[in-house]
């Protein structure tokens, strides 16, 4: 029998070396070191961008949400007690910021329906490349069929590479809830697999 497939992990977000580095950056940020904070920001920008996009399914508020998240990190860096990984702490903040953003955007959409036609004439130029990326990625279409919580679990598993107990900690729910959300998400995404096979 052949060996099991090995994962081709492009990035390792959670190596011990990285964690030590990030803990140090947070500690220096707590001391008011702007350069350390900028390093932390740059390290997490990509992760947060994709993480928040996959939960909110919108790219027009992502930078704002990222900055909200990192503003909390800047302000509360001294309260990080190192009992969890730096990524767990930061993604935990991002998760709830993203959920809050979904609620607020729903309210905004309710209140601004009459302006939608007008807004169509003023697309966000900075977001165009994201749209192109989205179109080219069939998986993004599959995400639309998932709930925000399911998307968060999928995102944190496949992209962030987190263990389910860490995801449970971030989402502040039982581990079995994480597994259940993943179970339903996989069922939905499985419908897209024929397309994936066709592409590969």
């Amino acid at each position: 029998m052949s060996e099991l497939p090995e994962s081709k992990v492009r990035k390792s977000f959670n190596s011990n070396e990285q964690q030590v580095k990030e803990r140090n950056l947070i500690a220096e940020t707590a001391g008011g070191n702007g350069k350390a904070f900028e390093q932390l920001y740059q390290r997490y920008f990509d992760r947060l961008y994709q993480f928040i996009f996959h939960i909110t399914r919108r790219h027009d508020y992502i930078e704002e949400i990222i900055n909200d998240v990192m503003y909390v990190v800047w302000e509360k860096a001294s309260t990080y007690d190192q009992t969890c990984r730096p990524s767990t702490w930061i993604l935990g903040i991002a998760y709830f910021k993203a959920l809050k953003s979904i609620e607020q955007s729903l309210i905004r959409e309710d209140r601004s329906v009459e302006f939608n036609d007008e807004l169509d004439y003023f697309p966000n130029p900075a977001a165009q490349w994201v749209s192109q990326l989205e179109i080219s990625n069939w998986l993004e279409a599959g995400f639309d069929n998932l709930s925000p919580e399911q998307r968060a679990v999928v995102e944190m598993t496949y992209y962030q590479g987190l263990h389910y107990n860490e995801i449970a900690e971030i989402m502040q729910c039982p581990e079995n809830t994480v597994k259940t959300r993943m179970f339903h998400a996989r069922k939905i995404l499985a419908k897209l697999l024929p397309e994936l096979k066709g592409r590969s």
Binding site: K8, G34, E63, N67, E155, Y158, L189
Partner: peptide, 25 residues
């Protein structure tokens, strides 16, 4: 395994991050 590999993304966001950090600063 296929799903996991599909989720690995590009570094296109790097340039956006610098502009956004300027706003946060």
């Amino acid at each position: 395994q296929q799903l996991f590999e599909e989720m690995q993304q590009t570094d296109l966001l790097r340039q956006v991050s610098q502009a956004a950090f300027a706003q946060l600063r």
